[in-house]
Every structure is written in C-alpha cells, then in structure tokens.
Design a binder for these strands. Structure first.
Lengths: 250, 250
DNA sequence: CGAGTTCTTCTCGAATTGAGAGTAATGCCG
DNA sequence: CGGCATTACTCTCAATTCGAGAAGAACTCG
C-alpha cells in the first residue's frame, strides 16, 4: 500500500499514533574540550538520566525551526547569538521500541556553537548543562541518545574536513591557532601548526583577513596573532583531510 | 515544553496528527545513464505526476525496513537481489505544507542498485518505471520530490568519493572499466582511464582480484579485462576526489 | 591479416603533504 | 630593564600524490 491510496482510504487519526520529535546534538568547545548540551530527565522513563534537548514538532513548524526553538529554550539564547549557531539535520531515529511509551520518530539535528553562557533549564524543571563528551557513558543516557550522539560526533569530525564549519565554534574574529585548536579538539589529536597554517590560508574562501591583530600575545608570550573571519566558501576545495587512522592493513 | 513532560501531560492521540512515511530515491545505471525509480500518481493531489516510491511506516517496522519494503514492492525484487541493494537514510522532509492533505514527515532513503528488470507497479494500480534522471523537470514531480531527488543525487556523487559504494551499481564481479563508467555516469564527466586504474588498485580494500578475466574483449576489440569484486573497506582512504568544479575564484 | 579498439602499465613534471627548523614578536620574571 | 621561554608565522626539503600523455599488448571485426 502506498501513500496516496492510504490517504484516500483512511482517516489519519485512525492510524496507529506516531509522534515526531526533534532532538539536538549541540556541540561547543570549552576549555579545550568538546562539550555537549544535555538535560537531566526528571520523570520516568530514564528519570535521572541525561538526554538530548528536544521535543515535539509543533503543527505549523518546520523541522529545522523546531530544532532551533528547542536549542533556544535550553540555552536561553536568542537573536543574533542564536542565529550564528550552525544547525543542520543529522538523521532520523525511529526504531519501534526506542521509546517505551509510544512510537516516536525523532529527527536529530546537529549544532555547532561558540562558547556560550551556562545552560539554563527550559520552562520546565529540568537541569540543563554543557558536559564534556568524554564524561558520558551510554549507560547514563536516555533512550538511544548515546547512539545519536555518536553519530553526531562522527558527522562533526567529518564536516570539519570538507566544510568551513569549524569557524562556527569560534567568535566572528579568530586566529589561525584558535581555528587549529578547534580541529585538534574535535578530531582528538594534535596537528602540525605550520602545515595547518599554510593549508588554511591556501584554501580559497576558508578565511579572510580582517587586517587586525590580537591586542596581546598569548598568555605566556609570543607575538600578536592576525585575526581572520570566515570566508564565503561553503565547501573546502581541496579538503583538509584528517590523518589516516591506523591503516586497516590487508 | 519538552518531550517527557509533554508525554506525561497529554494523550498522544489528542496531539495534532502527524504521519510518518518513507520515500526512496533508488538509483541504477542503464545504458550508461543514471536512472531513477518513480511511480506515476493516479489520484490527486498531483495526479499524473511522477513521485518517489514510498508509503507509511507500519507500527512495528523500523524506518530502514519500511524503505526496503517499499523498494521491494515497486521493483518486484526479493531475496538475494534485494539484499545486495545498498540502502541508507538520506534525510527527513517535514515542511508543514509539503502535503496539502495533512502534516506528513517523510524520511527519505537513498538506494544504489545494479541494473534490474523493469519495474512493476506495486499491488496498487500505479505505473512504475526507471527513468533517466536527466529527463525530469521539477514541474513533473509531486510534492517536494524534486528537492529530495536533488539531495539524493548530490549525496550519491559525494558518497562515491569516500566510500566503495560505486560497486553497488554493478554485479558482484566487475572490471575496472565498468567501475570507472559508474563514476563517470554519476559524476557526469569523463575520467582519465589510466589514473583511475592506478588509484582504484592502490586504495586498500576497495577492490580485490578474482583472478579471472572477462570471456571476451570489448565489443569493438581490446584485450580481456581482469575481474574484481568489492573489497572489505567501508571507507576509501585516501578518497577518490572528483575534480574541482570551476574554482569559485575570489 | 590489417586496422582500430581497449586494458593496463609506465613516465614525467607539477602540485600537495609531512616533518623539521628558523625568525621575530611578545609576556613574564628576576 | 634584560634575558628567556613562548608563540605566530615562514621557509625548506624530501616524499608522496596527481594529471596528462603515451606505449605496449591483447583483442574484435571485416
């Protein structure tokens, strides 16, 4: 049976209820570590467990709008600050038993944000916090959110390779070193500073110079760094490839 | 308001009805051109327009299972042949007005298949056919399916770069030339045969030799080609990058 | 058999990458 | 204020990869 016949033959409200929610894997970098926005569940199931911020899609709301609204509610963000957060669809999760109460299909989204003020729980009584991703075991997470987070992290690592989205973790003006630290944090290993510098400046449209420099050198010395802002490229050509993990030798 | 509170406070059936469907962008290569599986709609809205095969997700069915079922219904495929078709989730589409009858969120999937027998319409009365992707204008397509197809094509082009999925367009044993023709068809431009050959054989786990060769040379001459099968790599390291489109010069 | 086609390998210069080192600007500490 | 550690940025050089062309061998067709 296909969609159109089905709709002709059935009143939709007779059909087994499916709910559609959005969940957001929101990433930021704090103190050199990748952090993730989570809310603590107050009610069963999974009371006391951490969960992704999310909720129902409203009747006249686009999926992306629902995700951005959920993000705004949990971060207390609005206006220009919220608009600068990168938000993209990640994937949908719809295993029949993923929520014990009813059939829920969740459209997960992925967000990249610069360092933000501490999270405040939404209008409800939940606790919300940015937690380091390394501090999470799947045991402590509600539903299939551990899996969603893993998928989000892998997507984030991959997106840094071929898009300029690393800049979304930073303020509008940033140094090449700050940009490199984003890559090192998300990819989880150090990069060669000189080669990274050469590469970033050689990829067309990745960054553009502001002409300005930082006011001070680093905390422990060193020259002032030049400031850049994000360029207008949507894709990096050629890409910044992460070093091959240990070859699956065959 | 978030998910858990909402569920505690509301009977799901009171909530505005949302239906979840799957749609499938199924691609194959016929006569050197990329083809797409479509069904012709018999009923309004969009009667007479072409649409992606798809339908409702059943109550106890996973999203991927629903997509594979829809693909099976429209292609008449089953068993081993069906299992060899690559199927992955593409994205979800849920604009409030994408279907004029009610709120429908569709989880689109992307399929790569070797050349298959002609499509047969499903149990319903629709016409189903493999059509060349170049023959489609958005005007002739139902709903937002033109957009979904565009996203699927771009995903397909991109997936050929860093995964070995091009082999899924071919039979289990294939020649390097056949593999190159897949790339040329999906990417839409010719590749240097010698360099492609060198590259494919140098990427670990992409293809492995069967030891055998084709029975005959090409139709117009040439030596017999060696036969390969897909290797066990899930990702290509290093990737096969498509030539940069005209540089967005700045 | 001859001509044309195609698979496969080779060559060579250009471009990119990885690794290390060098230079100059800066903050910190005595 | 001077010396030193630190850091931004540049440079060098060898290794690798890539693009383009060509050569050689194996084959089909007429």
């Amino acid at each position: 049976m296909n969609e159109q016949d089905f709709l002709a033959a059935y009143d939709p409200r007779d059909y087994p209820a499916v709910a559609v929610t959005v969940d957001v894997v929101a990433l930021t970098i704090r103190e050199g570590a990748l952090h993730l926005l989570l809310v603590r569940r107050a009610e069963p199931p999974y009371a006391g467990h951490w969960a992704l911020p999310g909720g129902f899609v409203r009747p006249d709301e686009d999926l992306a709008a629902a995700a951005r609204r959920e993000l705004a509610e949990e971060t207390g963000l609005g206006g220009e600050r919220l608009r600068r957060v990168h938000l993209e669809q990640l994937a949908s999760y719809g295993a029949p038993d993923r929520d014990p109460r009813m059939r829920i299909v969740s459209v997960a989204h992925l967000a990249f944000a610069p360092d933000l003020p501490d999270a405040t729980a939404g209008s409800d009584a939940d606790e919300a916090a940015w937690l380091p991703v390394t501090a999470l075991s799947s045991r402590q997470l509600a539903f299939d959110h551990g899996r969603i987070i893993d998928d989000g992290l892998e997507r984030a690592r991959s997106k840094l390779e071929y898009t300029p989205l690393a800049t979304r973790f930073l303020d509008p003006e940033f140094t090449v070193t700050e940009l490199r630290e984003v890559y090192e944090t998300v990819w989880g290993h150090p990069l060669h500073a000189g080669n990274f510098h050469r590469k970033v400046l050689s990829v067309p449209g990745f960054v553009e110079s502001t002409g300005a420099s930082t006011e001070r050198g680093g905390a422990r010395g060193g020259p002032r760094a030049k400031l850049y802002r994000a360029g207008d490229a949507r894709l990096l050509h050629p890409a910044l490839l992460r070093p091959a993990r240990e070859e699956t030798v065959r």
